[in-house]
Design a protein around this nucleic acid. Sequence first.
DNA 1: ACCTGAACACCGTTCAAGT
DNA 2: ACCTGAACACCGTTCAAGT
Lengths: 182, 182
Amino acid sequence: MAVSARRGAPLTREEIYAAAWRLIDADGVEGLSMRKLAAELDVNPMSLYHHVENKTALMQEICLRVGTQLAPPPDDGLPWQDQIRALGDAYRELARRHPSLWRYVFNNPEVMSTRRGGMWDVLHRLLRLAGVPEEDVPRLAEILSSFVSGFIFSESTGGVRPDAWDDAVTLLIGGLEAYTGR
Amino acid sequence: MAVSARRGAPLTREEIYAAAWRLIDADGVEGLSMRKLAAELDVNPMSLYHHVENKTALMQEICLRVGTQLAPPPDDGLPWQDQIRALGDAYRELARRHPSLWRYVFNNPEVMSTRRGGMWDVLHRLLRLAGVPEEDVPRLAEILSSFVSGFIFSESTGGVRPDAWDDAVTLLIGGLEAYTGR
DNA sequence: ACCTGAACACCGTTCAAGT
DNA sequence: ACCTGAACACCGTTCAAGT
């Protein structure tokens, strides 16, 4: 038969993604190799290439899937300050659930170039709500996103104490209030 | 004689660091391998291990040297807002001079754990000058540092438009003013 | 003292061959 | 159609042997 000598059923893409994700969450992205992944699946390393183009394509697909898990909070009518905090919380929670994968995405942003979740639209809406002039919205969104990403990254490397998140968001909100003149 | 078959003089640590740094600035950290470095120096790959413990020790030493190049601006008596902007500029300029190495340090902060330049002390002084309560100074310094690092990192990956830096700093200064109640 | 070649344990990936 | 073994071009690093 054509299936693996060691397994009963043929490989599937889903199986591969799931196993890779498991390995990454356990050992970090740098702990993932095509050969280890194959071992985890009880399969010859070269079998993987029948289902996946190469390692970068594999990583890309996994990153797109983790991006899918980000559900930006809906507009609940609260003041923009509260909503921006909720958005930050949601983003940070996702990052903390998959620290290694999130670090990979942060280091390789081109991987998310196509689909980057509804987070961006929500942030733009909240900046408008805060009174940021339309022409400044995209630039400020990029700035805030880079700030928050930097903070989360530093949190994941221990460069920032664990209780700093609330103050960090407060600082950004204060900055926005100053920027728009209240 | 005991010197290389291909070179006239014996290797030195300095030579190795300089060549490695050159390779990194040219091809990025991921473009540096012990074998390429040896080729660059016209030497057998294994000769390097006589002068350098291993690749991580090599990277560590190079990072410490790049850290040395950061000269935080002296206290010129200007308002803290101006001084904090000058400090940010100095930090950002260093990062932009050696983008790949800086990204490596950001990703491997443990490398700088011992010696991390006078930047930290200057930032603490400026936060006190801004009126931040003493007990909050270290936490706020970490937050600001993570924000600015995130911004510079995003700049280096094209995640932020090139003219956003001034606004980014303005936002942080506004946030600090709000935090201390002016 | 300093350098080197062979070797080991890893990578990602290609390609021809198996069922 | 799906899987595999051998092979290639890379890594970092150890160790015994050379001068």
